[in-house]
Design a protein around this nucleic acid. Structure first.
Lengths: 157, 157
DNA sequence: AATTTTCCAGTTATCATATATCGAACATTC
DNA sequence: GAATGTTCGATATATGATAACTGGAAAATT
């Protein structure tokens, strides 16, 4: 998806929200965690752990993998970021704090990841599980394809 | 899920089917590929690449990672096995040859992976994508939880 | 049957992802 | 300021995956 919006707003919002949520819960939103969350929010693409490492390295310090993974674990526990299993990469949650299941539309063209929560889809998931008497605890639902904007671009080209 | 069935039938079927499919397509179902497919079908759990490596090692030979991954790639291309992204592991396809989307119910208790193809769920997925004008090319749909048998077991205990 | 072609599997090397363990630094609370 | 708890760092190791190249076996062709 081509984003014509002012993305700095997204970053600001995400960091502010994180700040608020952590304060509320008594979790510590440390400098490292803020930096990593900010990096992840540089765009709407999923970011790989080692890209974060590289970025941290260029910023001077010498962060090692465990540091990054711990920060990512924290951010995931607080629901501030999600992991995209099919990409081994991480993306910011657009509405942290609200209890929700996450479903992802991943454009293989522009790499944009859009998080959605479709009630109909969630219902179908629940139904499919129920049909097998399966009690659901978590879902990984990642749809790959091409987003609207890329599709338009392709058609035009 | 507790399997009361004679699992050796599953293995035989899987290998015979693979044989048939590969013959039909002119793909070569080599000894290594057969061994790996058989290993994956030892149960209904997803098997990790390095477990396959270890098993191959104990069987004498000295297989290296690329060998295993190449065999897995082949088996996936032919639709004989699927990768479970949320586990980084591989599971046999119960009905190869038939064109289908795969959805998985993964029991976190007994680790059994059940493949399903729910028309209702597939329709919901298509619908959710359409709602965002997203053109879908592939899906990763993995539901984690507890299967019927494990649930019963827990209740009894 | 001999030759050619194709493709499989092995080797080495390397990269990427993830965990375990331990200890030092730091802020917070009392 | 001492006690506590947490973060962050270093090191090591395990696991997951790919690249580039080579030799050799099987299939196809002549």
């Amino acid at each position: 998806m081509v984003h014509t919006h002012d993305h700095s707003i997204c970053i600001e919002n995400a960091v502010e929200e994180a700040e608020r949520i952590c304060a509320e819960r008594g979790s510590r939103f440390t400098d490292l965690r803020r930096r990593i969350l900010t990096m992840i929010w540089q765009g709407h693409k999923a970011v790989k752990a080692y890209d974060l490492l590289d970025q941290l390295a260029t910023e001077g310090g010498s962060a090692k993998p465990p540091t990054v993974y711990r920060a990512l674990d924290f951010l995931m526990e607080e629901g501030l970021v999600h992991k995209i299993e099919s990409l081994n990469a991480y993306v910011g949650c657009p509405h942290p704090g609200s209890d929700h299941v996450s479903q992802f539309l991943i454009c293989d063209e522009c790499e944009t990841v859009e998080e959605v929560t479709s009630p109909a889809l969630t219902k179908a998931v629940t139904g499919a599980a129920a049909a097998q008497s399966f009690s659901i605890k978590g879902q990984t639902l990642e749809l790959h394809g091409m987003c609207e904007n890329c599709r338009k671009g392709k058609k035009a080209a």
